[in-house]
């Protein structure tokens, strides 16, 4: 298991996602969106996107509806707290079975 042919002789890193691994495994609750309360969903046009702005992990897409990348979402709950219409709720991970896909 040698690294002799590895090009760099120095600590030289290139960029990519998931340096911390699958950080979605950190969370104990996940964000769930109620589209009926979500402003861009209701208006069907670009609006609000406060959840996208404040997400520390950049796992919320700036789309209609906003989507959560559960591979990396750490479940901090900032999106739920900041959403002006309380469209996002943090739900205990225990409610979601292991069979469900990670990306919703």
């Amino acid at each position: 298991m040698g690294t002799r042919n590895y090009r760099r002789k120095t600590s030289h890193s290139e960029h990519g996602p998931g340096d911390g691994g699958r950080t979605g495994s950190w969370r104990v609750e996940r964000p769930v969106l109620d589209q009926s309360l979500c402003i861009p969903c209701k208006r069907n046009k670009e609006a609000c996107f406060i959840c996208w702005l404040y997400c520390p992990e950049i796992v919320i897409s700036r789309t209609i509806p906003p989507q959560f990348n559960l591979e990396y979402c750490k479940g901090c709950g900032i999106c739920a707290e900041e959403c002006p219409t309380k469209a996002i709720t943090m739900v205990d991970e225990a409610h979601f079975s292991e069979q469900k896909k990670d990306k919703e």
Partner: peptide, 19 residues
């Protein structure tokens, strides 16, 4: 928020603390 550039310069899945 709506005219903030959308290009991201950081990948998700960092080792930063939750929140």
């Amino acid at each position: 928020i709506l005219n903030l550039p959308t290009q991201e310069f950081v990948h998700p899945g960092t080792r930063a603390c939750t929140g």
